[in-house]
Amino acid sequence: MSSRIVFAAAHVVAKDEHSVDWDATLEFRHHLWSHGLGVAEAMDTAQRGMGLDWPTAAELVRRSAAEKTGRICAGVATDHLTGEPGLDDVLNAYLEQLDIVQEAGAQPVLMCSRQLAAAARGPEDYEKVYGTLLDRVSEPVILHWLGTAFDPKLEGYWGAGEIPQATRNFLEIIHSRPDKIDGVKVSLLDADHEIGLRRALPDGVRCYTGDDFNYPDLIAGDEQGHSHALLGIFDPIAPVAARALAELAKGDTDEFHRIMAPTVPLSRHLFSAPTYYYKTGVVFLAWLAGHQERFQLLGGLESARSVEHLAEAKRLAEIAGVIEPEFAERRWSQWLASR
């Protein structure tokens, strides 16, 4: 389909506030695979740390990996820890999740850890944890740098409060073991920073954009390279993104941008501050598109965005061509009447 490797970070379909509708959740993964996209499983789009606990996330990874018909990667974190764990506790928690993801047959994504951010005292602690993890992986992994817009508890990650120094620390870890790293996913919503970072990566280490504001330009790239993608916005726009990527694979960059352009205002709206509530809009559009029977999120997170925000999301999704207007209008009207 494309010269780019592309993952859609997939949401989970909730049966109710406390449980997952497994059949609908897996059916949605097959929808993504059918469009040639990879599935990024159990990531923040699936409400990791915001409703999806680790035992359920582990089950999700196992089920999805068992049914995979395309690429799948999956989040490895430390979100099952409680209290105020120390550095060794954080490392052991990462290793526990890493083993489960590897055994399931998914490519690991080493996600940022709130517990590591709290326990680490400097860049040497990040080197210790990530170095040990990279020494243990059975295949190259994806490193994930999630910015504070997505999770304020990750302030100071990589052992520095300032992004330039954090980037230098991050690159030191990458350059120490490039053969263990397939790529890095960067979600700082800063296109210039991502371009600079990808130019500084060792040969063979990919940059997967996680920039839901500037993804078309970053994926299209420039004369010095391009980004691949691991994006939450590709969950609701999968069919449109697939068409655009097919044009890019044929070398038609202009047509790629023409198809992608209407999705950008939608994405910027869904990911507007507070950015971490973007999951509400993603699930709302899945419901308007007919991929699930209820507009419901784990933990009742469907109430995190206002009616006005959701109405604008619907309008922009229609312009972008990711929902069928008449069907979506019927569901919207029924939902408004039931409030």
Rank of each mutant, 00 (worst) to 15 (best):
S3Q: 08
R4G: 10
I5R: 13
A10V: 13
H11I: 12
H11F: 12
V12N: 00
A14H: 02
K15Q: 14
D16C: 02
A24W: 01
T25N: 09
E27G: 12
E27K: 13
L32P: 06
W33R: 03
S34K: 13
G38V: 05
A40P: 01
A42I: 13
A42T: 12
D44W: 00
G49F: 11
M50L: 12
M50D: 06
D53W: 05
W54V: 15
P55Q: 08
T56K: 12
A57I: 03
V61Q: 01
V61G: 01
R62K: 15
A65S: 15
C73F: 00
G75C: 07
G75I: 06
T82S: 14
T82M: 11
G83E: 09
G86H: 03
L87Q: 07
D88I: 06
Q97M: 09
L98E: 06
L98Y: 11
E103S: 15
A104F: 13
A106W: 02
Q107Y: 02
Q107S: 08
V109W: 00
M111D: 02
S113P: 03
A118N: 08
A119R: 00
R121C: 08
G122R: 02
Y130C: 01
T132F: 00
L134H: 02
H144V: 09
F150W: 04
F150D: 00
G156I: 03
Y157D: 11
E162C: 01
I163H: 00
P164A: 11
Q165K: 10
A166S: 07
T167K: 07
I173Q: 00
I181V: 14
I181D: 01
D182W: 11
V184Q: 08
L188I: 10
L189R: 03
A191W: 08
E194Q: 13
R198E: 05
L201D: 05
P202W: 08
R206M: 12
F213Y: 14
D217F: 03
D217Q: 12
D217V: 01
A220P: 02
G221S: 10
G221A: 08
L231E: 10
G232M: 04
G232R: 03
I233K: 03
F234C: 07
F234M: 11
I237D: 06
P239W: 14
A242H: 05
R243P: 02
A244E: 07
G251D: 12
D252Y: 09
T253K: 15
I259G: 06
M260Y: 03
M260G: 04
V264Q: 02
S267P: 07
H269Y: 10
F271N: 10
A273P: 01
T275K: 02
T275P: 06
Y278Q: 07
T280P: 01
V282D: 00
V283W: 00
G290N: 12
H291P: 08
Q292T: 15
E293H: 13
F295W: 12
L297K: 07
L297Y: 07
R305S: 06
L310C: 13
A320L: 09
A320S: 11
A328L: 09
E329W: 08
Q334N: 11
L336Q: 15
